[in-house]
Design a protein around this nucleic acid. Structure first.
Lengths: 167, 167
DNA sequence: TATTGTTATACTCTATAACTATA
DNA sequence: TATAGTTATAGAGTATAACAATA
């Protein structure tokens, strides 16, 4: 299956063909890489990308993050964060800590076991990603990063505008 | 939620920080755009991205595509294509046609109603995508397309190698 | 009243594997 | 035997809405 023609890009057919082709190519690239990462996480570590992402957030914030902060950063709604956190707590990889001064909230943070497990996964994850971009020169990597920076900023501007208009 | 810090990129922290940051930025961009497309398809047309993608394939192949071809092109397994096709058939948007000389297979193609519905959706879809890349010059669009072409080709090469090794 | 987080629910998408019919 | 497609099932991932506790 993986070697067959990838024809998602067939969708582009209009006067704005350039933008459409770019979008379909962007989508194809991210799907191809994501499939390998998800598969690897499942096969080698019996985990999932959202779980990995949640742990990655906590690894960057050793003091812990509140559920709501996790929800924002992971771009998913609160119920999902509760579910993933429950799983990770049950496995001893993260813990909920009381927040002084606000008894509604928790700080979620990695346990030592969780930190160790994450570092193990992150090492392998890094190899997948390095391999994924192996075909590009450092200069290409930099150009791509800068160009996608413009795309990302533009999306955030659009979303900001939508939110502002809704207020 | 949409305006909060997007901190998926926080994951990059190693000696291969460049590749990791690039991957996380690529993922963020495609997620941001995809969320808007999925939301728009749901709200304005009560449909989903996989359904739209299937119809887009058929629009490019007026003679029809076999279930297996659709499965390849959409990068999903056969059972899923059956399910989506069943939905679209029930709504009168696509039809299964007998294939001469192979009574196991069908050709799936858009009905006139399906073609009309798709064109309607594709027009709106194009506007979302044009808006998504509005911040980039034609030159940027071209650079990005070329660079992502290298990325895509490299993924396909990797997958080819994996398939070959498995044989 | 508003906010934090949980619970309950439902739906889409996906892969796997067993199955039917045909090649 | 192999292939095209279907069915059945299970699980990931997500959103929504009602809810409890606290601010």
């Amino acid at each position: 299956m993986l070697t067959d023609t990838l024809d998602l890009e067939a969708r582009a057919h209009s006067e704005h063909a350039q933008e459409l082709r770019l979008w379909l190519r962007l989508l194809t690239c991210s799907q191809l890489i994501e499939k390998r990462v998800r598969g690897g996480l499942r096969e080698q570590f019996d985990t999932t990308l959202p779980r990995f992402d949640l742990m990655a957030q906590l690894e960057r914030h050793p003091e812990g993050l509140k559920m709501k902060e996790l929800s924002h950063r992971l771009m998913v709604t609160g119920g999902n964060v509760t579910g993933i956190t429950d799983q990770l707590v049950a496995e001893g990889l993260v813990e909920r800590m009381a927040v002084e001064g606000d008894r509604r909230a928790f700080l979620v943070r990695l346990t030592p076991a969780g930190r160790s497990a994450f570092e193990h996964m992150a090492t392998q994850h890094e190899q997948w990603i390095v391999e994924a971009f192996d075909g590009l020169s450092p200069r290409d990597l930099d150009s791509l990063h800068k160009l996608l920076g413009k795309v990302k900023q533009h999306q955030l501007d659009i979303n900001q505008r939508i939110v502002t208009e809704a207020e």
